[in-house]
Design a protein around this nucleic acid. Sequence first.
RNA 1: CAGGGUGUAGCUCAGUGGAAGAGUACUCGGUUUGGAGCCGAGAAGUCGUAGGUUCGAAUCCUACCACCCUGACCA
Length: 569
Amino acid sequence: MRVSQFFISTLKEAPAEAELVSHRLMLRAGLIKRLGSGLYTWMPLGLRVLRKVEHIVREEMDKCGAVELLMPVVQPAELWQETGRWDKFGPLMLRIKDRYRRDFCFGPTHEEVITDIVRREIKSYRQLPLTLYQIQTKFRDEIRPRFGVMRAREFVMKDAYSFHIDVASLERTYQAMYDSYIQIFNRLGLRFRAVVADPGAIGGSSSHEFHVLADSGEDGIVFCPGSTYAANIEFAEALSPEKLRERASNPIQKIATPNKKTCEEVAEFLKVPIQKTVKTLAVMVNNEMVLLLLRGDHRLNEIKARKIPFFNNFRLASEEEILSKTGCCTGYTGPVGLELPIICDKTVVEMSDFICGANEVGYHFAGVNFGRDVKEPDHVYDIRNVVPGDLSPDGKGKLEICRGIEVGHIFQLRTEYSEVMKASYLNESGQSQPMEMGCYGIGVSRIVAAAIEQNHDEHGIIFPIVMAPFQVAIVPIGMNKSEVIRTEAEKLYTGLFAAGIEVLLDDREERPGVMFADMELIGIPHRIVIGERGLKEGNVEYQGRCDEKYQVIPLRNIINFVESIICGS
RNA sequence: CAGGGUGUAGCUCAGUGGAAGAGUACUCGGUUUGGAGCCGAGAAGUCGUAGGUUCGAAUCCUACCACCCUGACCA
């Protein structure tokens, strides 16, 4: 491709809307253009990158036996009403009506459609297992779209669905998908980690997420450096760092803590470690107030808390509710003297002589002990987020936390959808059985942003070779003045093209600096410069996107040289 | 959804009541040719939209819209 024929639109300054480095670079490099909040056009250059990612995903899916199809973006409401998700999905789903006022949605995911297809088509155990996938645009009306295509409303996703006669078959495909995902992210040249995850809204049992590691990631990843344990922070089990509860050694004592409402403030004011404080969260469950106790430096994990029996729709109590039940405002709430059910985090139940609110403005209790000053908790659960230094659940060391961008998620759905949608098959004995199902997603468009997040420098994007919009850029210096340079640049362009290399010839009438800067910004991995000074000796210059310096290469060898570098990388 | 912010040229932004601006990008001419050059000329805006105040509004007021940020139960 010649730059003069192609469409490149780079910007010196990024539009003010972009904050994240990948978003800024994608806009500056002209990969994407914003049309509306969370809506992006993939410009020609960006589309080439997106297609590269799709290509690798497609190859690996085909390799592991999945079969491609393409389902509609627009889906009838009836299917979603069948599974109850028409109501359950809420405002995340964009709904539309057709000319007859019938309800439809823009597909946020395709479980309903695929299950409908399979229940119509698959009748016999002989036709199973079957894995179908598509690479399709999805629409989710996100609360807050941000970071460009990282969290867009409209985005490209690969979603695969597998159907089985039993769990053993499901697990085999699940494992094959897991391995395939590892292969995909390796081929894409990404630094990533597979983690145990919460099955979440899609439902089902076992689940893994794949995260590209980046400080800007929206998810917390918990991992154990000494073992293979890795989990999403939403899911990671928090073990109690405390030893078994020690005997009470202090009398309970009321202490003035004027204007010290948070545990941090109280601990600092009393000059005690924050680990000696307990925070009390008043929550409402079915109009009843319940107290949740957490160590002062810990945070409630809402997902864990919702798994407590009958807790799935708890909410934090309002200021008025707290006042009426405890007689005090927030900041000084504590379990002492209140006749309310207590649910205690695993860590807190081992604490003794702790500090908590006194249910009186400006006062806390110190030396508080279960069984003496407060009743023993009614229930004890793991309801907090893991913090760095916690013991790994596999007992092989201490946990660390990093940030990740979720680019893949695999689930074992089991029979959740097949049962309600009656996707069943006849087994060998002629009995009707619901199919076991798996579901496997990859955020294709998000991968482009994640890759840039991980691979860039002050000059711009550094695309992994497999994702780059072009593999090689030819930058001729003074092409429009020098006949020799023009001729040699054209010859080299034709030669590389014939060798099957994706080459971009910068044939614009631009100054060298402009061409260098643009090729670096858009992240072309390899660059060949043809200038008078080298050509006199029959040489050109080669420089990799990450190389400090260029190498002088004889013109007659350059095609072989580039081929070997591209094949080797 | 709540709170905050911003809307002026393609992009980045100045302009607080009296003629619509700069840098950059773009077009043309010249010069230059190894890192976003230099000189000159030019084209370019419904100052987000609607209403109001005023002799006069980009500027003040009201409403709406769009976009961005933070949060969305962590006392």
